[in-house]
Every structure is written in structure tokens, then in C-alpha cells.
Design a protein around this nucleic acid. Structure first.
Length: 538
DNA sequence: AACATTACTTAGTAGGCCCGGT
DNA sequence: ACCGGGCCTACTAAGTAATGTT
């Protein structure tokens, strides 16, 4: 659980000029006006005439406060359950917080979680969900909801009308951390205006609902959040942000890909530098170069240090000895839990210099002590120093720029490769050609998702094939037998071959998509310019 | 510097909607 | 009319990196 010894203090400073970080830019000047966040409606008790909750077999009426929190747990029971040991933690945290919402009498009675029976609530929630709703009712509800939201969903930024991203504060509920998160199940409290800080221009201060008051009002032109509140569980600030369609967000996104283009231009120099630093006499430099090699070659995340007690996940700089295996010559394995507790487990080929360095780093630290398996692999560096190292080569270059750079480059390469191998034509072709074009795009997208290790756990790839896959398999068999009855060289034969190829590729895609999710790479990593160019040129 | 906080991006999942096949 | 899959969006957790503080 603890992640080894503290890192050695970073010592040397190659040049004295501590270049000042770029001043925070102005995001808006005159106008930043909006309605503030929409708040969650008050809790409406679901308890009927007979208590839905039972304690030790006996029906027990709960006060509204206690019921609200009990129903949060019931709601968890309605959805996907977590594995046993994690659920145990969830129950403990929930129960501890639940007691805080009970009155004295309830606290006295409800002493043991094991004696609580939430099945009445679960049943009620499920019944409500299954209640048939007519089309008209649904439409009316939707309309009402949308009307209620209109006042919140726009913000005027210096005269431009923009959309707000998440304009509603997060509802009270159980905190659902991922992986082995120790805070799972704690109760997220209701957010009220008194918790919220508003950021707006001086002339347009939104009115807090009812008689309530905002916690604070600021007019910070260097940030683009509209409202914020503090989340006690994660000890972090939550924000109401602009929608990604807004101009500011788009400009920033464009800058991201401009930085990637700049790296593309300078990549040879950057690589030459770290290749030579791989053999540096200075151990710290050697560790930095090795980490950058891994970040560049395998598109790893930087790996910031995490606070004590946080979920044990790592990135490149925070890798520990236990995450690395040296296999055959130049062959290594990395096996660790990354962001969102997604396992990264890959056999990788590295250069001899990197292999030698890794072998060196994993055995002893530079005070000569033998390293333990839970010691840092790169104990002399952290993301900050790596980014500083990178920033000296190219302005604005940080670890995450490599990830975007590699993703976009990989996408481009795979698009070309697959386009060629399927002989995609520029001219408008058969329906099979069109289908193949979409498949080529998706396969390139998938290759990026694999590189970035964007996995879905929600569609377990092991057990039970879904119907769509079985159907494709049988269609492939049909197509194969049909093909046998045709003679080679005929138009019909060519057509059937094309059809079979589409089916085969489609199946391969579908199978892989059970493990890899394409969305994230499409949205965050692939330069839209690359997709646009390709679709025009093929 | 080192550590803490802040502000923003990147991430997987749930749930709604649409659409083609039945 | 219904069903299941694909696709999209909302949601919010969990990263990165810049900024602020000691």
C-alpha cells in the first residue's frame, strides 16, 4: 500500500534562469453573466403508510433525513454491484455517514448494518422505474425539464452567447470511486447556495434562489469557471464549466494540437537529445531520459505523485520496481494499474540502452541500497522535473503532449496503412467500398485506443458472445460457402470477396470493441484536421 | 525547493434515443 | 410493435500541470 521510500531530493540545477511560468491568461474581460447553477430538488420521501425499511426483521419508519440516505444505498443495490471486498468498504463508509443523518432515537436502534433490510426500498425503486409511461407523458416531462433548464444553460462571454457544460450541481448520493478506492460509499452531501462560489462580472451577479446567499462572489477574469464548491470527500473543488462547444474551449483545444504540430517538427531533435541522455553520467538525467523514452514510445501518462491513502494507481514517473519485468534481451513487461484502475499489461520492446538503464534502476538506488519491490523505479525524478527537462527542449512541451502526439501520429499511420491494404478508392464506389471506408476509420481509431489502453470493463470480453457477434459469424460462414460455388475471376466472385472481407473486418472490430472503447481517443486525442483531410481525400 | 491548492483535461459508465431487423 | 445494438450525451471520477504558499 505505501509506495516505498521518499524520493531523494532533486539536487542539480543545470541553468540558473528559473524561467517564469507563463502568466495566467485572461479568459474574459467585460461580460461573464449567467444564472448560477441549478440546484437539486428537495428530497421527497418514498415511504408509504407502511415502513419500507426493516431493522432486525421489524418494520421501522425513518425520518426524512435518514430515509434519504438509506435510499441512496438502495439505489446502489438496484444497479451494478461492486466486488465483495469493495462492497464491504462501501457498506462501512455508508453506514458511518448514514448514522450522522439519523436522529437520536434512530441512532440508538440502528446499530448494526447487518440487521438492516433495504429490500422494501429496492422494490419500490424498481416498481417506480418499471411503471409504464405513455409517449405523451414522457414528452411532457421532457419539455418541462427542458423549460426549467433554459435559464441555466447559457452564459454570455463578452457578448457571445455560449452554452454551459454541467449547469446542475451534483446530486447528493454515494461517492462511487473506481478500483480499490477507500472512500467509496461515503455520502456526498446536498450542495446548497451557501456552499457555492460564483464567478461573474460585476454587473451581472446571479440571484441566489429563495432567501439564500452565495458562499462568495468573485470576478476572476483569469479563469473560465462559472461556479464552484468544495467536495469534502475528495478534498477537491468541483466546478460549473463552459460547454466544450464554447469558443474559449475550442481555442484551447486548437492550441493543444498546435503544440502537437510543433513537437512533430522538433521530434527528431527531442529524440536525439534524450537518446544521448540515456547514457549520461548523471543518474538523474539518465532517469529522466529513460522515462521520456517510455512516455514517447508507449504513450504513457506522466504519473504524478499521489497523496497518501489515495487509490494505488501509477503512471510513468511513479512506476515501482514491482511493475517492471525484464524478459529476454530488450524485451520488458510493464504491468500496473493506471488511471481509473485500468490495468496496463504489455510486453514491450525497448532499445538496448533503455533496457540496460532499467536493469540498473531496478536493482539499487544511488545511495547504493538494494531496492525493494515497492520502491520507485525512477526515484530521482518526478513529473515536474521531467516536464522541466522537456520544456527546455521545446516551449510548452510536457509529458501529456507526447500522448496526444503519438495518438494522432498513430491514427494517421494506421489510416494510411489500412487504406492501402484495402485499396480504398477516391471515387465513389460500391456500397461495400463505403462500408470498408468506415471500417478503416474505426480500425485506425481502435489502434489508437489500444495504444492508449482505453479499456472498457463494462463489456466483459471473456464470457458469453453477444448475438450480434454470433450473427456475424454465421453470415461469414454463408459468404464463404457461397464464394466456393463461384468461379474465380468473375465479377460476382469479386463482389462476394469484397462482401466477405467487410464481414470479416467488421467481426474483428466488434470483438475488439468489447475490450477497447473508441470514444475517448476520438474526442480527446485525434486531431480533427487529420480525420477531415482523410475523408476528403479518399 | 517542497508542498498544497487550483483549474483544467481526460476517463469510463449509465442511460436515452434512434434505427434496422423481425 | 418490439428488441437489441450502436451511438451519443450527461455525469462525475481521476488524471495533469500550472499556480500559490511556506
Amino acid at each position: 500500500m505505501s509506495s516505498g521510500r521518499k524520493r531523494a531530493a532533486s539536487s542539480s540545477k543545470e541553468d540558473g534562469s528559473s524561467e517564469q511560468g507563463t502568466k495566467r491568461t485572461i479568459k474574459w474581460t467585460k461580460q461573464f453573466s449567467h444564472a448560477g447553477p441549478r440546484f437539486q430538488p428537495d428530497y421527497i420521501p418514498i415511504n408509504g403508510t407502511k415502513p419500507l425499511f426493516r431493522y432486525n426483521g421489524e418494520p421501522l419508519a425513518l425520518t426524512a433525513n435518514a430515509e434519504e440516505v438509506a435510499v441512496m444505498y438502495a439505489r446502489y443495490l438496484c444497479g451494478k454491484r461492486r466486488e465483495k471486498n469493495i462492497e464491504k468498504m462501501l457498506q462501512q463508509n455508508f453506514f458511518q455517514d448514514w448514522q450522522k443523518s439519523m436522529n437520536g432515537k434512530e441512532k440508538k436502534i440502528i446499530e448494526k448494518f447487518e440487521l438492516c433490510d433495504f429490500s422494501g426500498f429496492v422494490k419500490k425503486l424498481q416498481e417506480d422505474k418499471e411503471k409504464p409511461v405513455t409517449k405523451q407523458e414522457r414528452a411532457a416531462q421532457k419539455k418541462k425539464r427542458e423549460e426549467m433548464m433554459t435559464q441555466y444553460k447559457t452564459v454570455i462571454v463578452d457578448g457571445r452567447k455560449e452554452l454551459v457544460g454541467n449547469f446542475t450541481v451534483e446530486p447528493p448520493g454515494l461517492y462511487m470511486g473506481r478500483g480499490n478506492n477507500k472512500k467509496i460509499g461515503h455520502v456526498k452531501k446536498r450542495i446548497n447556495p451557501e456552499d457555492v462560489t460564483i464567478n461573474c462580472d460585476e454587473q451581472h451577479i446571479p440571484k441566489a434562489p429563495g432567501n439564500s446567499k452565495w458562499r462568495a462572489i468573485v470576478h476572476d477574469r483569469t479563469v473560465m469557471w462559472l461556479a464552484s464548491w468544495y467536495d469534502e470527500i475528495t478534498k477537491s473543488t468541483k466546478y460549473i464549466q463552459l460547454h466544450c462547444s464554447s469558443k474559449i474551449k475550442n481555442d484551447i483545444e486548437e492550441e493543444k494540437f498546435e503544440r502537437v504540430s510543433e513537437l512533430k517538427k522538433q521530434i527528431n531533435d527531442v529524440r536525439r537529445q534524450y537518446e544521448s541522455d540515456l547514457k549520461s553520467k548523471d543518474d538523474e538525467t539518465r532517469q529522466k531520459a529513460t522515462a521520456v523514452y517510455l512516455i514517447d514510445k508507449f504513450a504513457l501518462r506522466a504519473g504524478n505523485e499521489k497523496p497518501e491513502g489515495a487509490t494505488d494507481t501509477v503512471g510513468c514517473c511513479s512506476l515501482r520496481v514491482e511493475h517492471l519485468s525484464l524478459l529476454a534481451s530488450k524485451k520488458i513487461q510493464l504491468n500496473f494499474l493506471g488511471k481509473d484502475s485500468i490495468r496496463y499489461e504489455k510486453d514491450l520492446l525497448v532499445s538496448q540502452a533503455v533496457y540496460d538503464n532499467l536493469q540498473d534502476f531496478r536493482t539499487k538506488d544511488f545511495e547504493g541500497k538494494k531496492k525493494m519491490k515497492n520502491d520507485f523505479l525512477f526515484e530521482l525524478i518526478k513529473t515536474q522535473s521531467v516536464n522541466e527537462y522537456l520544456g527546455r527542449r521545446m516551449e510548452g512541451l510536457t509529458a501529456k503532449v507526447f500522448r496526444t502526439f503519438r495518438a494522432t501520429q498513430h491514427f494517421e499511420e494506421k489510416l494510411n496503412e489500412y487504406s492501402k491494404s484495402h485499396k480504398l478508392k477516391t471515387t465513389k464506389g460500391t456500397p461495400e467500398d463505403d462500408k470498408m471506408k468506415l471500417i478503416v476509420f474505426k480500425r485506425a481509431n481502435l489502434a489508437v485506443a489500444e495504444l492508449l489502453n482505453h479499456q472498457t470493463l463494462s463489456k466483459p470480453s471473456g464470457k458469453g458472445k453477444p448475438k450480434a457477434i454470433m450473427k456475424l459469424e454465421s453470415r461469414i460462414k454463408d459468404a464463404q460457402s457461397q464464394l466456393k460455388s463461384l468461379s474465380n475471376g468473375t465479377d460476382e466472385y469479386r463482389k462476394q470477396t469484397a462482401k466477405l472481407e467487410v464481414l470479416t473486418q467488421d467481426l474483428d472490430l466488434k470483438v475488439k470493441q468489447r475490450t477497447f472503447a473508441l470514444g475517448t481517443s476520438k474526442i480527446n486525442y485525434i486531431d480533427p484536421n487529420v480525420s477531415a483531410e482523410w475523408s476528403v481525400s479518399t
